[in-house]
Design a protein around this nucleic acid. Structure first.
Lengths: 221, 221
DNA sequence: ACCGCACCTGAAGGTGTGCTGAAGGCGGCG
DNA sequence: CGCCGCCTTCAGCACACCTTCAGGTGCGGT
């Protein structure tokens, strides 16, 4: 799961726990203890989804909710106390996409966040091979959290290999899939594989099978 | 269908039935009655897919699901009881790749497992002779789990022999199939058979039939 | 038991495959 | 129009692999 999530929650324990869980789930996360900076955050962080506690000190939760609806097209998931049935209904009617009742299991929260994102078409499809993450829709690649700067060709090459992980891909096949060539063109593939390998950093990921082609494989152990 | 599947299910009847069915379908299977050793199993067995009962004694299904998602990129298929609480299931379902409701027909389970594996591109084609596994698509060979480093020629040789297991293959035939030669070329075959044997480790696999050729056979002890 | 032939295996030369740094060319953007 | 980044080609290099050869080993037949 890859998306940007803004968490507004005053209870520090919950805020950090949720933040960590979302990050581990693959999200970019920004956490806030109140909604004072909400407008700026929406503009700068451009979240795909806002996780909002409705019982906040300072500005009222429902005002914030309306702000989010107005200033962005992010999804909204509310955090509500168990006995606030009224709030629940009202919140949903006013335009939240889902809600979670405290206390909650972290996994359930993550699941709901993911469900909302999926429903909104805001979930990006990510291929993962070991610590390598390829976001096909965003055309971005990262290793161990750090983004890699790949050229268009390198990205196509990597994506194609990732789509056939654990399978040997011949050079002719690559040439056809990535470049659209039918015939053999010098050592084009080798040069780009070389560049790609350098950027990937780890030699344990992209193997060359002499006489056969290349192979992208998650390193064992 | 060839893949590694971890089955976590407390009911012994179901566990063994599913295990046998998966093995018959061609999978490597590891079965567990609970999730106590999950971390270790994920690391050591490296399953392509985890078949998980959500109603387990001991550790909670949520926790196990999260663990699998975190520690591996295996697919997940859930086994659920028909009367389980609905939104609890919903949460689980969003994190899993598929689910099967008990009671189920074995064939359906197998079909779903295969579908998930195919969707993930984790299905492989493998020839097996004894403890020897030849993954044609990955151009890789392993014995008793340990990978062997074969050259292209050795792999071709082995693959050809494996394709006619239990049959004597003449040198001229090998020369034609592996090298494309028509005439006889010194002791080419012998040299490569020798190298191959050394890498295979066991002499019980690749036999010499004096005056006739070679024979690949699963050791019967 | 001996001999011959088939097979084994270590070593060495040569060849092809793959890697990489560098330079030319093309297009995009300021 | 000029710069810059990227793609592509080229050439040299390194090394894994194939192949040949030569001497050794063991089986089978006589």
């Amino acid at each position: 799961m890859v998306a940007r999530v803004l968490v507004v929650e005053d209870a520090e324990a919950i805020r950090t726990a949720v933040g960590i869980a979302l990050e581990e789930a693959g999200c970019e996360v920004l956490t806030r203890a109140d909604g004072e900076l909400l407008e700026r955050d929406l503009a700068a962080f451009r979240p795909d989804l806002v996780l909002l506690d409705v019982m906040l000190p300072g500005r009222d939760g429902f005002v914030l909710l309306e702000l989010v609806r107005e200033l962005s097209n992010a999804g909204i998931v509310l955090l509500t106390a168990r006995d606030a049935v009224e709030d629940r209904l009202h919140g949903l009617r006013t335009g939240a996409d889902d809600y979670v009742v405290k206390p909650f299991v972290l996994a359930e929260l993550i699941a709901r966040v993911e469900a909302v994102l999926r429903r909104m078409g805001r979930l990006r499809t990510v291929l993962e091979i070991g610590d390598l993450a390829i976001d096909v829709e965003a055309s971005s690649v990262s290793r161990a959290g750090r983004p890699l700067e790949l050229t268009a060709t390198e990205l196509k090459l990597l994506t194609f290999l990732a789509g056939r992980r654990d399978k040997v891909v011949g050079k002719a096949q690559l040439l056809a899939a990535v470049w659209g060539y039918d015939d053999y063109a010098a050592n084009l593939v080798e040069v780009h594989v070389s560049a790609l390998r350098r950027k990937l950093g780890s030699p344990a990921l992209l193997h060359t099978i002499r006489g056969a082609g290349y192979l992208l494989r998650e390193p064992t152990e």
